[in-house]
Design a protein around this nucleic acid. Structure first.
Lengths: 139, 139
DNA sequence: ATTACATGTAATCATTATAGTTACAGGTAT
DNA sequence: ATACCTGTAACTATAATGATTACATGTAAT
């Protein structure tokens, strides 16, 4: 299993909106990402929903709606819905309640899983698009 | 997307091997986990491969092969192969090399993804089965 | 050695998510 | 009116999961 590449594509899109000063249509962007324009439009729609991006029906071009330093990778990750809140890890459903272990295993494991997930997400919180763009500029 | 419940089941199995002093056959365990014995046998096979568990063809019962304090959740996580090394996050393949962003995005993003994954795995490294069993005993 | 029962493993299936593709309704602008 | 764009739905191929069935093989008690 892996976390959907929608996340990587979302970062790619936002980075491109910053660095490519031309008008960025879904087709332009799709050319850079190397995928289908409809895929781009869908992801942009998700970025728009959380107000990271400005885009209008019929009007060519998407734009960033926030400063680079104000967009964390966690924002993008949440926008594209690659992982549900507190559900990075699956619990097995319906362990046997008549068994001492089965009765208690879920509530024992769940907080551990959640804290592992949060540790991962905290790393994403501490990286902004500005960091990403700067790194790309350095190449 | 979620990380397979094989991980949670693996923890369940090992915990049961510790706490249930009867002979733990795949059917016994399946009864506690509430799944099919063949599923249990497959996961036990994976735990056996990394030497966490002792089990023999034709001979009823699996046993722990290490002390509880010497088994981390990371050991279990790796044993059941729910996430490949450095591949929790997917990169999109083949971004356009003729585009400045496309050419550099992957190598920029990858180390961030890896460090996020490692942060998550570090939490699992710091929890042992002893912690889990103690927590269950406290209930 | 026969019987009973266990593990190991392959094959199959339903379900679900992903990523791509096509198509088209509806908005915008010249 | 035309050209081009976004938004979105429908459909596809592919892959992973978890459950299930079946059976070969190993173990042990009688």
């Amino acid at each position: 299993m892996t976390i959907s590449s929608r996340f990587a594509v979302g970062i790619h899109i936002l980075t491109l909106l910053e660095l490519n000063k031309e008008i960025n249509t879904s087709e332009t962007i799709a050319g850079s990402v190397n995928t289908n324009p409809a895929v781009i439009r869908k992801i942009i729609g998700m970025l728009k929903k959380v107000d990271l991006v400005e885009v209008h029906p019929g009007k060519a071009g998407a734009k960033l709606k926030k400063g680079l330093a104000d967009i964390t990778l966690l924002d993008v990750y949440q926008a594209v819905e690659v992982v549900s809140e507190n559900e990075l890890f699956s619990l097995h459903e319906h362990p046997n309640p008549d068994c001492f272990v089965g009765r208690n295993i879920q509530q024992t494991i769940e907080p551990i899983f959640i804290s592992a997930q949060l540790a991962m997400e905290k790393v994403l919180l501490n990286v902004t698009l500005e960091d990403v763009v700067r790194e790309i500029d350095n190449k």
